[in-house]
C-alpha cells in the first residue's frame, strides 16, 4: 500500500469528521451518539485507519500511528465537548418540562395544640422553679378545716362571704383557693425555710362573663427567718416583669385575707396602654392580677410553727386571668368550651 494514500485517507477522514461534528453541533446535537460510534467505535473509522497501518512499511508505522492517535485525541475531545453540551441541554429541557405549581399550598401535618392555660401554667412553674420553688399540691375536695379554719377563717366569719363555696358534704368543700396547699404543706414539713409553688383548680359558686365556677390559681409561699413584706414585693415584681414585660410597674393596695397580714391586692401597669388608660384596664392604667400578703402568724401557729421565728409571704393569682390578659381572650367561658376554633389558635 502506498503511504501517500494512507496519509490522504487520514487527512480526508479528519476533514469529514470535523464537518460532521459541525453539522451535528448545528443540529442541536442530533445523531451525536451514532456519529461517535461511526468514528470512535471499536469498528469505527479511526480504528479502521489503525488496522490499515499494517500495510505500511515498518519504518513509517510509528509516525503514522502517532498521527492517528492525534486524530483520535482530537475526536474524543470534540465529542466530549458536544456530549456535555447535549447533557446540559437535556437537563434544561427536563427542568423546563416540570408542571409543578410552586404557588400550591404546602403539604402539612395538622399540628396539635396545648391549652393556653397549660402554656401559662407551665411557664409559671418553670419561672418559679428556676428560683428554687418546689411544686406542691393538695386535694381539690378538702375538709373545710384546711380551706378555712387553718387559714384563720373560722365558721360564721364574714370573710366566708368572700368565698361562694361548693359543699359536697358537712364540712367538706371544693377548695375555694389554692391556699389550702399552704396548710397541707406546712403540716407535712418540719419548720424550716420554704419556697413552695402550688398551681391548681379551685371552685366558686359563680358563673358569668368574668367568673367561672372552676378556675386555676397559683399559690406561692416563702418562709424563712428574715422574710419581709418588701421581699414579697421584690419577688412579685420579678414575676410581673416576666409575664407582662420589662418595665412593668407594680401597685400594691391594702386588702383583707384572714391568712395574710399585711394583706394586699396586686395590680400591674396595663401592658396595652402602658398606664395611660384604655378599655382593657377600664381606664385606670392598672390591671388587678392577684392577692398577697405576709403569712399571718395565726396560720403558722395553727400548723405548729413558731411565728416569732418564722416569717414569710404568700401570693396567689389566677392563671385564667393571666391567660385572658396575655392573649386578649374576652370571656373566661371560652377557656372551657373546647371549641376547635379556639383550641387551634394556641
Amino acid at each position: 500500500m502506498d503511504s501517500n494514500n494512507v496519509n490522504q485517507d487520514l487527512e480526508s477522514l479528519k476533514i469529514r469528521l470535523l464537518a460532521d461534528l459541525d453539522t451535528c453541533d448545528q443540529g442541536g446535537g442530533d445523531g451525536l451518539e451514532e456519529l461517535k460510534v461511526r468514528y470512535l467505535g471499536k469498528k469505527g473509522e479511526i480504528y479502521g485507519l489503525m488496522r490499515g497501518m499494517g500495510a505500511l512499511p515498518a519504518d513509517q508505522r510509528p509516525a503514522f500511528g502517532q498521527m492517528v492517535n492525534t486524530l483520535r485525541d482530537l475526536a474524543e475531545e470534540r465529542f466530549a465537548v458536544l456530549e456535555s453540551r447535549a447533557a446540559e441541554q437535556a437537563i434544561a429541557a427536563k427542568l423546563s418540562a416540570s408542571t409543578v405549581d410552586p404557588t400550591l399550598p404546602g403539604t402539612r401535618s395538622e399540628l396539635g395544640h396545648l391549652h393556653p392555660l397549660t402554656v401559662v401554667r407551665d411557664d409559671t412553674i418553670d419561672f418559679f422553679r428556676g428560683m428554687g420553688f418546689e411544686l406542691a399540691e393538695a386535694p381539690e375536695v378538702d375538709h373545710e378545716w384546711y380551706n378555712f379554719e387553718a387559714l384563720n377563717i373560722p365558721p360564721e366569719h364574714p370573710a366566708r362571704d368572700m368565698h361562694d363555696t361548693f359543699y359536697v358534704d358537712e364540712g367538706v368543700v371544693m377548695r375555694t383557693h389554692t391556699s389550702n396547699v399552704q396548710v397541707h404543706y406546712l403540716l407535712g414539713h418540719e419548720p424550716g425555710p420554704v419556697r413552695m409553688l402550688a398551681p391548681g383548680c379551685v371552685y366558686r359558686v359563680d358563673n358569668d362573663a368574668s367568673h367561672a365556677p372552676m378556675f386555676q390559681q397559683v399559690e406561692c409561699l416563702v418562709i424563712d427567718e428574715n422574710i419581709s413584706f418588701s421581699h414579697l414585693k421584690g419577688v412579685m415584681l420579678l414575676w410581673a416583669e416576666h409575664v407582662f414585660g420589662k418595665g412593668t410597674k407594680l401597685r400594691v393596695r391594702p386588702s383583707y385575707f384572714p391568712f395574710t397580714e399585711p394583706s394586699a391586692e396586686v395590680d400591674v401597669s396595663c401592658s396595652l396602654c402602658g398606664g395611660a388608660g384604655c378599655r382593657l384596664c377600664k381606664h385606670t392604667g392598672w390591671i388587678e392580677v392577684g392577692g398577697c400578703g405576709s403569712v399571718d402568724p395565726a396560720v403558722l401557729t395553727q400548723v405548729g410553727w413558731d411565728p416569732e421565728r418564722w416569717t414569710g409571704f404568700a401570693f396567689g393569682f389566677g392563671i385564667d386571668r393571666i391567660a385572658l390578659l396575655k392573649y386578649g381572650i374576652p370571656n373566661i367561658g371560652l377557656l372551657t368550651r373546647n371549641e376547635a376554633g379556639f383550641l387551634r389558635q394556641f
Partner: peptide
C-alpha cells in the same frame, strides 16, 4: 401584726421597697 399592717397602710404600701430575698440557690 394588725398594727403592723396599719403602719404599712399609713406609709402607703407603694412606698415599701421591692427587695429580692437572699436565698440559697436550689435546683428543683
Amino acid at each position: 401584726v394588725d398594727l403592723i399592717e396599719e403602719l404599712a397602710r399609713r406609709l402607703d404600701y407603694n412606698t415599701i421597697p421591692a427587695v429580692l430575698p437572699a436565698l440559697p440557690l436550689k435546683p428543683v
